[in-house]
């Protein structure tokens, strides 16, 4: 009986540990915490009659102040797209802009938030094709920042 009980505890322990490990694996992206900041800022745009539909895909990385990175994305005419860029430091002042395939900045509407660490922009592309998101940090901050970009369409 004691052996059976020990075996049960052992198997239960292994199963529980495996379940916990799976839970952790889904949260292992080191940038998840920054993505949550962007998602929180996105919430108002995802409600109501003219709501945007959030994609599950997202981008992340680490940025040095004054340096920029480019993200390639395919956009479709007649749709509107909203992008959110977040960094953890409230003084981070991230910048996001959209460029067409010729490298010209596309007119967009900026959306501000209470803190300085999340910015958002809305674009309505004139043509279907590849566009580039340029993400950067103002040099008002001196340490590199983790960042995350999420996007939605309507």
């Amino acid at each position: 009986m004691r052996v059976r009980l020990s075996a049960f505890i052992f198997v239960f322990g292994i199963t529980f540990a495996a379940a916990q490990e799976e839970e952790l694996l889904s949260l292992t992206s080191p940038y998840n915490y920054v993505k949550l900041l962007a998602q929180e800022a996105a919430l108002p745009s995802l409600r109501g009659g003219e709501k945007f539909i959030l994609r599950e895909s997202w981008w992340s990385g680490n940025l040095e102040p004054g340096k920029a990175k480019l993200i390639q994305v395919q956009l479709f005419r007649r749709n509107a797209y909203q992008f959110w860029l977040a960094v953890p430091n409230r003084e981070g002042e991230p910048i996001i802009n959209v460029y067409d395939s010729e490298g010209n900045m596309v007119p967009s509407k900026s959306v501000g938030f209470e803190g300085k660490n999340v910015v958002s922009t809305v674009v309505e592309p004139d043509t279907t094709g590849v566009y580039y998101l340029r993400v950067s940090l103002k040099t008002t901050i001196d340490s590199p920042q983790d960042w995350a970009v999420i996007y939605a369409y309507r």
Binding site: W59, G61, K69, L70, I71, Q72, S101, G103, Y132
Partner: peptide
């Protein structure tokens, strides 16, 4: 942000993750 960027600039850093 610049009004125009040269996409051929070898110093540009592209994020490798592609989203379809």
């Amino acid at each position: 942000a610049p009004a125009k960027i040269n996409l051929e600039d070898p110093d540009l850093v592209f994020v490798s993750d592609s989203v379809i």
